[in-house]
Design a protein around this nucleic acid. Structure first.
Lengths: 154, 154
DNA sequence: CACTAATTATTAGTGCACTAACAATTAGTG
DNA sequence: CACTAATTGTTAGTGCACTAATAATTAGTG
């Protein structure tokens, strides 16, 4: 027999609880490391996207980070205030916003190269263990994006 | 040779990115389910803690949920406004806040028993797969709470 | 060209999570 | 008892994330 559904409401058994705690805890590990670069964690993710390609439109960054443009707007505004990027309309399509790294923004990548190693060491995880956890998360994300199973007719 | 550290800054390889997306995505799955009960996800976690034991002090709930009391205060205030719990000082220790389920709060557990099954079905995950993911998250949380390795003298 | 629809960003409002500062009570010490 | 320290909560302020509403531009249609 399987585990009784009786205990399904125990806090310590909730995946959603473990997941939110893990997310907050891991981001908390990044915090002191990123602070030296003057970045918050969401700002760091935006910079990662721009270090891969610049300029990019807000829409493009929004798709890459799986964030609403409304969430990214204030983050980009702060990064612009910090002098790491510029925001200007795309010539020929005034609806789109072109986000471009400044020299300072591009230069910050140097410091960032040390971050992943620092975090792995801090967590005491090997590259392989990180890859396994990453794969597990990717699978879970895929599960959330699958269409909901059809409900039985009531 | 191991994977070159050159690509360590690729967004798609970041565990922290996958983790925050997974957390948001899973909580997003809960949202419509909990909305029918009038709860947000953090409120749901507080209710889970109280369904296990009531009354509990704020400090006790804070320890169980790994949340600062400052984070829980406004959540508890809203749950009190919703009539699901009461907040009063502990007789004999005026510093502590006793949080107690009301009848309505206790009764809400009936509806909640269906939640875990609904979510598992929605995610298309078996009880075993959920348990595996939960164990992975628990291990990751433990990693964040271990003391940082000693830094080499520079 | 005029009208409509779609795309793209921004702003306002709600709620969570954190730190820092503050207030209040309780416990410990001489 | 008076003084100090520790415990416990609350409030203020910053920032993230979402939805809804709005605005502006662009594309499509007759």
């Amino acid at each position: 027999m399987s585990t009784p559904a009786e205990d399904d409401l125990l806090l310590e058994r909730q995946l959603c609880f473990a997941l939110t705690v893990a997310s907050r805890s891991v981001v908390g590990i990044y915090k002191p490391v990123l602070e030296r670069m003057g970045l918050t964690h969401p700002q760091y993710l935006v910079m990662l996207a721009l270090w891969e390609r610049s300029p990019r439109t807000l829409k493009d960054i929004s798709d890459a980070l799986l964030h609403e443009p409304a969430t990214l707007s204030p983050i980009l505004r702060r990064l612009e205030e910090a002098g790491l990027l510029t925001r200007e309309r795309v010539p020929g399509n005034e609806r789109a916003l072109a986000v471009t790294l400044t020299e300072a923004g591009a230069a910050l990548r140097e410091q960032a190269t040390a971050v992943p190693g620092t975090i792995m060491e801090r967590l005491g995880l090997s590259r392989e263990e990180v890859a396994e956890l990453h794969a597990a998360m990717t699978g879970l994300i895929a599960a959330t994006q699958r269409p909901a199973p059809a409900t039985l007719p009531g």
